[in-house]
Design a protein around this nucleic acid. Structure first.
Lengths: 209, 209, 209, 209
DNA sequence: TATGAATGAGCGTTCATTCAT
DNA sequence: CATGAATGAACGCTCATTCAT
């Protein structure tokens, strides 16, 4: 791949990432191309269609999120601290989850490309390890599973649309803080409905419309 | 209003509600009309444009949500129980919040019709009263405001897109349970970032820009 | 025909006349119905379609124009004075000509109803008589025909769209005055191109698309 | 601009010009696009909306009309001869005036683009100069203004809808000849109503209503 | 390979006309 | 008969994707 082509591809992915983060995965391809400083034709030379672009953004995102999570795990003293840091601070992870929950087809879209599916799995596995380790060390309540944590995080990754935006930002952080508080191991926990949700409970076959 | 017209209007609102709930407020009017069993022209006879339809759905929703919340308040022994019931069980309230947070224009859209704006305000006021009463009775922690509760609820009202759907449903309920747990007044609370968010902190002027 | 039906019919024709005069013969039927104080269904009970309504308005108009022209002929001292009065003052005749020239299909539309066609013919015949008499009395130049006069008048019946409207009105009157001046018999006339145009030169078959 | 794009743009303008000339400025864009041999999207790539297309046609027209009028002025011996040639022969000027008087919004539409407004002004100024010069040389009666001439011409630019079309064409020419005759300076002129109308009397603010 | 023009299906909306009440 | 609701074809315009330059 020529150097300029490589550079264009990267700029398109970066532009798409920005648009997806602010306007969701239905953002106009034309706007994305313009932001990337290329013509629409160039975008489509690199990505067969919108879904391919989404996959590329997702892979990029998952990879960054994995890197951030890995750093958290290795740098924090406990699994709990790592978990808190990951959930609270990782913008990349936030976007990853937004993408994953942005529209129902997402899993089907990802599965069309081995790399995308692997990156997703890798990310989930990493989260799973942190969750289990935190439970093992006694800091995370044991009646929740990685699936619970993932769902919580996915939901909290939606943009909060209130004014002023500083309040929106704060609201989101407070919400996260509350949730984390409820996740911490403690004496008197309510009985949660059902059983803990683990990755295995989540079928990724979402294509039956 | 003639009986058949009334019936069609209701069917259109119902169809729109279903589409908005599953596909967001940009769902094709054509599909909505077809679901309602009417021609596109009929939809537009009843609603001047998409925004008018959104407002009608919102009013319908807010009204139902208010009714459910009112019932909860009058039937439950404590404000806390009422709050739990409202947040956990009201599907209408859930959709209401989804609509409200679906896109940033929503407030501007609602403000164009007095009824819509009033219904929204009425709903928020009701929630506000329950929140304050629960705090007064000592069951709800006092470092959160109605705005915090509303944001949390709005976020949790997003659809969870995992398979199987029974798991998605469960995940959502568990998430809500965790949040409620963290809201309950107790001994050792973490320090939340910032100050409690109350309705007053939320500017409803979203039309600038 | 019941009295109320008759009244509705008349009001619809009157409303249509007003709309056609100000907005041309494509004015929305809905607006016409509303102006007439009836529902659209009522309009269509009386007139099969837009063309039928146009014919009704045309007949009404032609009849009034004929009456005004007849009065002019009988009251004015000379054919010339009658002609001037007809062309200058008859609002009905003005609208008649506007309708006739508003869209190319008009003749075809009129021909579908004997009455409409007859009224038109009657009106043209009357104008023809006045023209010939004015020429006989030596007040109208003899190198113009009734067709010339009709065309002139039709053209001058178009609305003048300039601001302020008083100026538009004046401009129209001045234009008419100029044209009348050029029609008066006098010494030194320019040679007009072609031959005088008489009603016989005008084929009324306009339906070949 | 690429050669093919330029060609398409020109074809669209030409097609629109033809449709506007025959069916007025509300002619379906779809038909215009088809006539130009392009898809609807192409039309909208070149012109943001119908009004932009109207302006493009108008500019094209005004420019051609100005060129023809300029040629007439420089080639004819007197201002009078130039005026006669302009009014009689310029098909472009004829369409220009038809557009200008086609609907009341036209001035507002033109004013949205500097070029369009300038071209219009340029055209009017040119006519104004010829009119004043003809009056100075004693060939044009002095109780008419450029506004009178413009209105007359606008009115005469409407299509004459009679059959056969050769007769329509002739009728139009004869009408113009009569008007020109009445414009020539001479001994015994009738008193025209009101005062001469000059461009200054014509407010170009047509947007209040 | 990049460009940016062209395509054309799709959606929102209008309105002449029909039809159930 | 009148009403006014329903119909559905038509039109303006958008945008994902393809293709000529």
């Amino acid at each position: 791949m020529r150097a300029d082509a490589r550079r264009n591809r990267d700029r398109i992915v970066a532009a798409a990432k920005a648009w997806f983060a602010t306007h969701g995965p239905e953002a106009p391809t034309e706007d994305i191309a313009r932001s990337a400083g290329v013509a629409p034709g160039t975008l489509y030379r690199h990505f067969a269609d919108r879904e391919a672009l989404i996959r590329a953004v997702a892979i990029n995102n998952f990879d960054h999120a994995i890197a951030e999570a890995t750093a958290a795990v290795s740098e924090e003293a406990s699994a709990w601290d790592a978990l808190v840091r990951i959930l609270r601070q990782s913008q990349e992870l936030r976007l990853s989850f937004r993408l994953l929950t942005a529209y129902p087809h997402m899993h089907a879209v990802l599965k069309k490309e081995r790399d995308a599916e692997q990156a997703r799995k890798h990310m989930v596995d990493l989260l799973d390890r942190v969750v289990r380790r935190a439970q093992a060390e006694g800091t995370l309540r044991t009646d929740v599973g990685t699936g619970d944590v993932a769902v919580m995080f996915a939901l909290l990754s939606h943009p909060v649309t209130i004014d002023p935006s500083a309040t929106a930002q704060l609201a989101s952080e407070r919400c996260m803080a509350l949730l984390l508080e409820s996740l911490r191991a403690g004496e008197q926990h309510d009985q949660l409905p059902g059983q803990a949700i683990w990755p295995e409970q989540i079928t990724e076959d979402r294509d039956r419309r």
